[in-house]
Design a protein around this nucleic acid. Structure first.
Length: 564
RNA sequence: CGGGGCGUAGCGCAGUCUGGUAGCGCACUUGACUGGGGGUCAAGUGGUCGCAGGUUCAAAUCCUGCCGUCCCGACCA
């Protein structure tokens, strides 16, 4: 294709709003333009990349035995009422009303639609297992769209839904999809990790996320320094703490005037922070609920949200609510004598002779011991904290380390959540009704474009992996407009290479060489062919086959062989 | 939704504090020169200063309200 005929509006400077590398480069290289918050137009170059990603996904999904379908973006409320998610989803689900006053939503995902299809059309165990996928537009009214297409409101997703007659059959499909995702990401030359994850809004028992490693990633991955354990921080666990030492001190109250934070209290009492225990008050259905963590630990909101009686989404209790419930301000509350439900993190429960708020302003207890000074029932024990770098790994191998990742894929074990709720069944070998076990498998196509760029760029611009580049070769024709010989050579190569099925972009614009080179570096097409009068006089063009390769002088007739 | 920032030409910005009728660089158009790493010169095009209301002889500038957008926190492919 001719560059003069394509809209590729490159920019020297990145627009002010773009912070991360991929967003800046996507704007600068003319892949996308923003329409509104979280809504983007894909320009020709960006769309070509999307198409190549989709092609790889299709190939691998088809290879895994999945069948492609296409479901509607607009979905009737009835199905969502059946699954219970019409209420559960909240404002992220964009709702609309048609001219007949019927309720609809813009599909953020398609479990309801596919389960409805299944119950209508699939009736026999002979048709199982089966796996349906689509590549389609999703809409999620994100609280905060961010980083360009990385977190957009409207985006393209490949989503798949599997149905199996029993757990063993399901497990096989799940493993196959796990492998399939790994193949897809490897073909895109991505450095990624598959990690255990929280299931969030989709529901179900277990899930794995696929993260492309990048400093700009929004997620933190915890992994064991040895062995294979890796999990999203939302879900990551550490090895259990050693048993609690026996009490060594007696409990007494000390004045801690004006001390509100753990750090202040610890310093004032000349005790290590990990000797303190902190109490966080979160909102329960009616009363606040106290969460007890070791002083140096951080609350994990996802884990806390799963506690019985906790209001979702998780909110901290207000100062007034805390005062009403405990009689003290937030800086002085503690588990001793608490009149509200108390949940204790395993690590906090393993501390002896600890320091905690006395539920009296400006006072703390020291030398406190579980069991002796306050009750601790097994039922109160939970894992409620974020693991930290250096924690012992749960697999008993080494310690935990962190990486940042971009979640590009997420596979879920749904169990029979949806099939049960929506009455999807099949007849088994004995002629009895069975409830299919489902899985669902998402992969963010447009997000992948950003993720690929995060891993494949340099100071000058993009560096597309060959499998994803919008073009295979960039023909940079110098002085194309005025030099007859350049024009002939360039047009000839364009025709020849195109006929051979090589996607070529010919820079035939009347720009100076410097501009063309700078744009070529920005666009990041893997192979480059430079055609100039200087070389042609010696019967040569210059080629660079692949990123970072050396420039070679070869005859124009040899180009096609070198590119193959 | 809470906190903060920003809205002036396609992009990046100055001008706002201290009111006086809008400017710089790049881009774009035309011409000339130039022609292997964002070239030079000349002449141009392009702006309801986010929107609405108010104060004033006069508003990009002051006041009020609204909208948009970006960043930081709770959600997710």
């Amino acid at each position: 294709m001719r560059q003069s005929q394509l809209l590729i509006p490159t920019l020297k400077e990145a627009p002010a709003g773009a912070e991360v590398a991929s967003h800046q480069l996507m704007l600068r290289a003319g892949l996308i333009r923003q329409v509104a918050a979280g809504l983007y137009t894909w320009l020709p170059l960006g769309l070509r990349v999307i198409r190549r990603i989709e092609a790889i996904i299709r190939e691998e999904m088809n290879r895994s035995g999945a069948q492609e379908v296409l479901m509607p973006v607009v979905q009737p409320a009835e199905l969502w009422l059946e699954s219970g998610r019409w209420e559960k989803m909240g404002p992220e689900l964009a709702r609309l009303v048609d001219r007949h006053e019927r309720d609809f939503c813009l599909g953020p995902t398609h479990e309801e639609i596919i389960t409805d299809l299944f119950r209508r059309e699939v009736h026999s165990y002979r048709q199982l297992p089966c796996n349906f996928y689509q590549i389609q537009t999703k809409f999620r009214d994100e609280v905060r769209p961010r980083f360009g297409v990385m977190r957009a409101r409207e985006f393209t997703m490949k989503d798949a839904y599997s149905f199996a007659a029993d757990q063993a059959a399901f497990d096989a499909t799940y493993r196959e999809m796990h492998d399939c995702y790994s193949r897809i990401l490897r073909r895109m030359q991505l450095d990624f990790r598959a990690v255990e994850a929280d299931t969030g809004n989709i529901g179900g028992a277990n899930s794995h996320e696929f993260h492309v490693l990048a400093e700009s990633g929004e997620d933190t991955i915890a992994y064991a320094s040895q062995g294979s354990y890796a999990a999203n921080l939302e879900r990551a666990v550490a090895a259990p703490p050693p048993p609690r030492p026996a009490p060594g001190e007696s409990m007494s109250e000390v004045a801690t005037p004006g001390m509100a934070t753990i750090a202040e209290v610890a310093q004032f009492l000349e005790a290590p922070v990990r000797q303190c225990v902190k109490a966080l008050a979160i909102r329960g259905e009616d009363n606040p609920i106290l969460i007890i963590l070791r002083g140096d630990h951080e609350l994990n909101a996802i884990k806390a949200q799963k506690l019985p009686g906790v209001k979702r989404p998780l909110e901290f209790a207000s100062e007034a609510e805390i005062r009403t419930a405990t009689g003290a301000s937030p800086g002085s509350i503690g588990p001793v004598g608490a009149q509200v439900p108390v949940f204790v993190d395993h690590e906090a429960a393993a501390v002896a002779d600890f320091i905690c708020g006395a539920n009296r302003d400006g006072h703390h207890w020291v030398g406190v011991n579980w069991g002796r000074d306050l009750p601790l029932d097994e039922s109160q024990l939970r894992d409620l904290r974020n693991v930290a770098v250096g924690d012992p790994a749960p697999n008993g191998q080494g310690e935990l380390k962190f990486l940042k990742g971009i979640e590009v894929g997420h596979i879920f074990q749904l169990g029979d959540t949806y099939s049960q709720a929506m009455g999807a069944t099949f007849l088994d070998r004995e002629g009895k009704a069975g409830v299919p076990i489902m899985g669902c498998y998402g992969m963010g196509v447009t997000r992948l474009v950003a993720a690929v760029i995060e891993q494949h760029h340099d100071a000058a611009g993009l560096r597309w992996p060959e499998a994803l580049a919008p073009f295979d070769a960039h023909l940079v024709a110098l002085n194309y407009g005025k030099s007859e010989s350049v024009r002939e050579a360039a047009d000839g190569l364009l025709a020849e290479l195109s006929a051979a099925g090589i996607a070529v972009l010919l820079d035939d614009r009347p720009e100076r060489p410097g501009v063309k080179f700078a744009d070529a570096d920005l666009l990041g097409v893997p192979s480059r062919i430079i055609i100039g009068e200087r070389g042609l006089k010696q019967g040569c063009v210059e080629v660079r086959i692949g990123h970072g390769a050396d420039l070679e002088q070869i005859a124009p007739t040899e180009v096609i062989a070198r590119l193959r």
